[in-house]
Design a protein around this nucleic acid. Structure first.
Lengths: 229, 229
DNA sequence: GAGTGTGAACGTATTCACAGCC
DNA sequence: GGCTGTGAATACGTTCACACTC
């Protein structure tokens, strides 16, 4: 335990830093400056240094950060030193995709069960796991000590699933269904909503107007680095 | 055009309000208060009113908001009165799921092409569209006047795809690949990252400790409304 | 009375700029 | 000289509380 309170915005960026550091380590880099890590992750160097300062003073003035050590500290802070069992409910196209996704197989998480209320799906095997009936949720959660649940059901089923997850002991929910979930305040819900993301893009499309001409030169894509202006 | 600048945080919530209003309209409600809409969407009523005030004064004091009219105004503000052509590059499990997803079929968007660099995939039909070779990108974008692109490729291919999209005239990108994209500042990129979301949940799991006991009573799930304490 | 719209207060996040250390 | 760590300044977002309208 370091400083017991790290800003939410910082937490959300730590995974990005972590990924970049892992990639650097794989490339054999042993040290890196805030300037470099910031450029690679698309944030400003000042923001990066502030973020890292919340974890402690792990850099060396005049030198930079030790890649391996910083990586270890972020891993530790995020709680990724141990493995977190995850259950996924709703194995349609999206649930199927997530179960097979590299995001779930990355270090720190293991999918322990796939559940679906549709009897036609139960028994089918996806990503090496047999789909089990939704009614097995509590058993599965208790047996595996799962604390994280993913909801990839239609919107109408989402609240029922969330209630069952909470009752079973799930404390963190990642919700892909376009529904607002009500849960006890001790349970954390994060929402990923495809339609919302597209609508935000539509807003910006409308604002900057569909008037711009396409850039013909492929090299133009390299012209500007994000947040380095 | 109303007030030319609406806060980013507000924009991100408008789609949620829109969905709730649509659902209310379907239920036959003709009017609603900020209190009610706030409860349904999980925000505070003060925040909701401030958000809506950025669009203009569309409410009636002592009464509330006209559901249909407010819905129309939000639709208009988000630019959803017209249809936005979307191209998806990378038709693996996730791309497949998104192409079939209701999020893309919801009013305002139409998937005009699915592209993949893998010759083994081109020609296959997904959600009623034949997968085309990645090399067709520029043609497809120009022909359909597409301004929005979705990237669901592996991380290594993402930057190349983004460059090609920008060169073809795409101005808004939704990136599902775990990679930081560099694009001209005129292009908007929004990122959805599964691994990051899970890692944020892991952080909170670790903090509140895996010590809590499961709640046995199903009804406990209904105990507390989010943000209504 | 009921409920919106909004200035003012508060809290959080980002940027700046530089002191301090290697 | 180079680069981190951090107070101070600024920008942004949320909450409060109430004037104003129907």
């Amino acid at each position: 335990m370091t400083t017991s309170r790290i800003p939410e915005a910082t937490i959300a960026r730590l995974p990005v830093y972590l990924r970049a550091l892992t990639s650097m380590a794989d490339s054999g880099a042993s040290t890196c400056s805030s300037e470099h890590l910031a450029a690679v992750t698309g944030v400003s160097s000042a923001k990066l240094r502030k973020d890292l300062s919340h974890l402690g003073s792990y850099g060396t003035r005049g030198v930079g950060y030790d890649v391996a050590y910083l990586r270890y500290q972020i891993t530790r802070e995020l709680g990724l030193s141990q493995d977190w069992p995850v259950v996924i409910v709703g194995i349609g196209n999206l649930g199927h995709a997530l179960a097979s996704s590299s995001g779930f197989r990355s270090r720190g998480f293991s999918t322990v069960a796939l559940l679906d209320a549709d009897p036609a799906r139960t028994g089918q095997e996806v990503a090496g796991l047999a789909i089990r009936p939704f009614a097995d949720l509590t058993d599965v959660v208790v047996e595996n000590g799962a604390g994280i649940g993913v909801i990839t059901t239609p919107a109408l089923a989402a609240q029922e699933v969330a209630d069952a997850m909470v009752a079973a002991g799930i404390r963190s929910i990642l919700n892909f269904a376009p529904a607002v979930l009500s849960v006890p305040e001790t349970v954390l819900v994060r929402k990923v909503d495809l339609a919302t993301e597209l609508q935000i893009l539509a807003y910006h499309e409308q604002r900057q107007g569909p008037g711009e001409e396409p850039v013909d030169d492929l090299l133009a894509g390299v012209a500007a680095e994000v947040e380095t202006a």
